[in-house]
């Protein structure tokens, strides 16, 4: 499976570059489609696997903090590698650098008023803005309470106590209007779990570690022969979008 990966990725990048061509000319005007079923060859929009090198949003010191956090949320043990080695910090960095981090799909018009819990997040900060403020406030809090030590310099037990404090509302960080400490923790937890359980092409879930841990077969798509085999585990391991078609063909 692994042997096929470089070839597969090259093909996907080629398709992605072809797919970009009609996007440059299309989209600016209404499309009229009379009297045919529209069809353009190679017009798909495959995902672009992340570049594993470097950091796109997080600063070097933020990287150290985030790596320490994800390693406590998902500690390394006999079940899987930890959050850092699984790529959760890389995942978070790439998400924050992209449309998720910019809230580009959300409703961002004011006025920004304090809301009820049933009305959801009403702050003005985008997710990337929330990370920037939240990570700084966390470090300020930790250094003040631990003789200048940063979050990453604390012991695992100390780190867990801080994360629990954020989760349970026992620690209040100085954040921004409409953005509470608990909301910061929930954002960290949500994105860490997304990275751990998403397809590896987004930077987390390295080697499909989480899918192996729980027995999720990933991007497989045909279970007709197994649906009615009751009370039996599925016999095959996971495949990802990047490992793709070679994995589907595994038998026995």
């Amino acid at each position: 499976m692994l042997d096929n990966r470089p070839l597969k990725m090259c093909r996907r990048r080629f398709l992605a570059s072809v797919a970009a061509l009609p996007a440059l000319t299309g989209g600016a005007f209404a499309h009229t489609m009379p009297h045919s079923l529209p069809w353009s060859p190679f017009a798909g929009d495959p995902p672009k696997p992340i570049n594993p090198l470097g950091w796109y949003f997080l600063t070097p010191s933020e990287v150290i903090t985030v790596e320490a956090i994800v390693d406590r949320l998902i500690p390394a043990d006999h079940l899987s590698p930890g959050g850092k080695d699984a790529g959760c910090a890389v995942f978070i960095d790439r998400q924050l650098a992209g449309s998720f981090g910019k809230s580009s799909h959300l409703y961002n018009k004011g006025p920004f008023l304090p809301g009820l819990p049933t009305q959801g997040y009403q702050g003005e900060l985008t997710p990337s803005g929330r990370y920037r403020i939240g990570l700084k406030a966390l470090e300020d809090h930790v250094r003040a309470a631990n003789a200048g030590k940063s979050f990453a310099e604390l012991t695992g037990e100390q780190q867990d106590a801080i994360l629990s404090g954020l989760e349970e509302g026992k620690i209040t960080l100085k954040l921004a209007p409409g953005f509470s400490t608990r909301q910061f923790f929930e954002l960290l937890l949500q994105n860490t779990m997304e990275g751990f359980f998403a397809d590896p092409l987004y930077g987390g879930n390295k080697d499909m570690a989480s899918w192996k841990m729980i027995g999720f077969p990933g991007a497989r798509y045909d279970y007709r022969d197994y649906v009615e085999k009751y009370n039996q585990p599925y016999p095959h391991g996971p495949v990802s979008i990047m490992s793709g078609a070679p994995g589907w063909n595994v038998k026995g």
Partner: peptide
Amino acid sequence: NIGYMPDELR
């Protein structure tokens, strides 16, 4: 497309 539709995150 089956090549990339099974993508929970996206």
